[in-house]
């Protein structure tokens, strides 16, 4: 565990907590894409298939449980909570799941480390995570008024990805045989998707104006 990895995990955790806090305390999910949240739930469910079979560390197990629990509870809140569900922008959140899920599944069937169920699911979860933010970014672009918490949520997620890249660079130089092409390329693509958002996020911060993405 290096400092980049830890900082990355902590920003990831913070992003999830910011979102849960927003939904739980304000009882509103305005500007939050249910599609993205459902894709994340699927990402964690397919990636953490090893949770009860391969023990890595207590930290690892606890974090996995947190990410699984939080992603499914966010989905539950938006779909089922009697107050929160009313604030869901259903008509704006129109991205189709299968546009992302099917290509990722096909890619995972072709490109994986080993042709076993768990390895294919693992590759699938990496490809899907790379693009899972897209419905959220599209929704942000359509929402004229992005509230601070939603903006911070996306910013923290982007920061988490950027820190993971630093973590891989560090591990590449400090650990023998640390080469993971699938993880790296999927992670790089994922981080690049945030570039545009980051640009507008910093501009709005620098000029002290409300964040708004151009249509």
């Amino acid at each position: 565990m290096n400092i980049f990895r830890l900082a990355g995990d902590m920003t990831h955790l913070a992003s999830v907590l910011v979102l849960l806090l927003k939904i739980h305390t304000i009882k509103s999910c305005a500007g939050v894409s249910l599609k993205t949240q459902e894709l994340y739930a699927l990402v964690f469910a397919t990636r953490y298939l090893d949770i009860f079979t391969d023990f890595i560390s207590l930290y690892n197990t606890v974090m996995k449980l947190i990410f699984l629990g939080s992603s499914f509870s966010i989905v539950w809140y938006i779909r089922r909570h009697k107050i929160v569900r009313r604030s869901y922008d259903k008509d704006q959140d129109t991205f189709r799941h299968y546009f992302l899920v099917l290509p990722c599944l096909l890619l995972a069937l072709v490109i994986h480390e080993k042709f076993t169920f768990r390895e294919v699911m693992w590759a699938f979860s990496l490809y899907l995570e790379a693009v899972a933010i897209l419905p959220q970014l599209v929704l942000l672009q359509r929402t004229r008024n992005i509230d601070n918490l939603t903006g911070q949520y996306v910013f923290l997620l982007g920061a988490y990805r950027a820190l993971y890249i630093l973590n891989w660079i560090y591990r590449y130089f400090t650990e023998p045989h640390f080469v993971h092409w699938i993880t790296w390329i999927a992670g790089l693509v994922q981080t690049l998707l945030y570039a545009d958002f980051f640009y507008y996020y910093f501009e709005s911060w620098k000029n002290n104006v409300k964040l708004q993405l151009p249509a």
Partner: peptide
């Protein structure tokens, strides 16, 4: 070393 080596990330 762990069977799932390198898959120790989240």
């Amino acid at each position: 070393r762990h069977f799932y080596s390198g898959k120790d990330e989240l």
